[in-house]
Write a protein that binds this DNA or RNA. Structure first.
Lengths: 223, 223
DNA sequence: CTGCGTCTGTTCAGTATTGAACATGCATTT
DNA sequence: AAATGCATGTTCAATACTGAACAGACGCAG
């Protein structure tokens, strides 16, 4: 019974802390909204910590098809794909709003992991991300689009939302367009589902989305 | 343009070698066809090397829905999910035929990685698996079922097949049922697609599937 | 060589999903 | 306040997909 936070993953504190070490010399980079930090095919051999803002990770095909793999926010580390050691990115990281990141090269990062004997933590982290992706695959194969959307909303609410009675209030908006690229369906479909959810009381509001944790869980339970 | 071997992943030689070290004391286990090596919820804290046979990794829900995440064969290492350190399995590994595996506990495995200073290799391996899963997600979100099937066939042929002219001949069969759980569609659908592929010359034969690498690639290219 | 079980082939009605088009709403700029 | 631009809402015909049911083929154990 997979219940992981599909594509709204938390970063383990240890990874975050690594970026604070004096021995590292992270470069602080400010990125405009809609600008990419790295793109498919780039030779970018670094990891990033988000100081503020929001970043989406997307894969795309030559034909222009896109899929949103994950969204990261302040405190998250992303760019682990460089740990493959191929030197090339196979996805694009793009700022969803004005964002500030700290950048550390793979070599420096790994050297610091070595110095602090933190390999097992890093391995734990990667194994956990692997499990999350695996759960995402399971969801795509076995659940219908509506359910997948509910799950994604719940995941984001739990990651980004502030408690508000039985609700979780999300400050950051996610466009229907983005949601469709996460869920794997079309934009009009998302609109329809969202309306249904609103009617059923699973979510509330338009500007800031407010999610009723329990009701969404209930919806996901029912066969 | 993701082109990884979706769900037919090769194991890096270094991982395989680790299982040969004298300092490790792997337990050799013989598993009957259709028996599971570990199952969802099990407390199984080990990695496995396949000596002979074939293993499928599947995730399942309480409702009985299943999804085939990966297939591993002789020489592959699986069970990395234990590296999360939760002590519990969140997927099931099941022998598709009589299979012999070598089992090494996580602690022993990591100790050996430490002794041989091979952390970076392990990290590379995990990062690569992560990228593969990511590609699988992309495929599920952006491609239709027929294309996904073509891709899966190609991946397996390249992993398991022996060259035979322009073809790759697969000794091991994969049932339509299994394929449907990989691709995320129904069994009758797979049958239909396979017939279409046969007509178009992408594949040949019934017993042993024979795949025309080039033709399948062509099919995948065409938008 | 017979029966059994498993896998493949086939059909189909019902449903879900796509993709394209157009309409509306809501901020931001001028 | 009008104009602009972007996100959401709405519709619909065409298509893809599901799930269930049944038939045939094949391999294997008795």
């Amino acid at each position: 019974m997979p219940t992981s936070d599909t594509r709204a993953e938390a970063t383990s504190p240890f990874l975050r802390e690594l970026f604070d070490r004096d021995s590292l010399s992270p470069v602080r980079v400010r990125v405009e909204a809609q600008r990419s930090i790295y793109a498919t095919g780039d030779e970018d051999d670094a990891l990033y910590l988000i100081e503020s803002g929001q970043v989406k990770l997307l894969m795309s095909s030559a034909a222009g098809q896109e899929c949103l793999v994950a969204i990261y926010t302040a405190g998250d580390v992303f760019g682990e794909s460089c740990l493959q050691g191929t030197g090339k990115r196979n996805e694009t990281a793009s700022a969803m709003q004005a964002t500030v990141v700290r950048r550390v090269s793979r070599r420096e990062f790994l050297a610091e992991v070595y110095r602090s004997n933190a390999y097992e933590s890093l391995i734990r982290h990667l194994a956990a991300r692997l499990a999350e992706r695996q759960t995402a695959i399971f969801d795509l194969v076995t659940m219908d689009a509506e359910r997948r959307l509910a799950k994604v909303l719940l995941a984001f609410a739990e990651k980004l939302g502030a408690p508000d009675g039985p609700y979780l209030r999300m400050q950051e908006r996610i466009s229907h367009e983005d949601l469709s690229q996460i869920v794997g369906t079309t934009r009009p479909r998302i609109t329809k589902f969202m309306q249904g959810f609103r009617k059923a009381g699973l979510i509330q509001g338009k500007r800031a989305i407010v999610v009723d944790r329990e009701k969404v869980r209930e919806f996901l339970e029912q066969e």
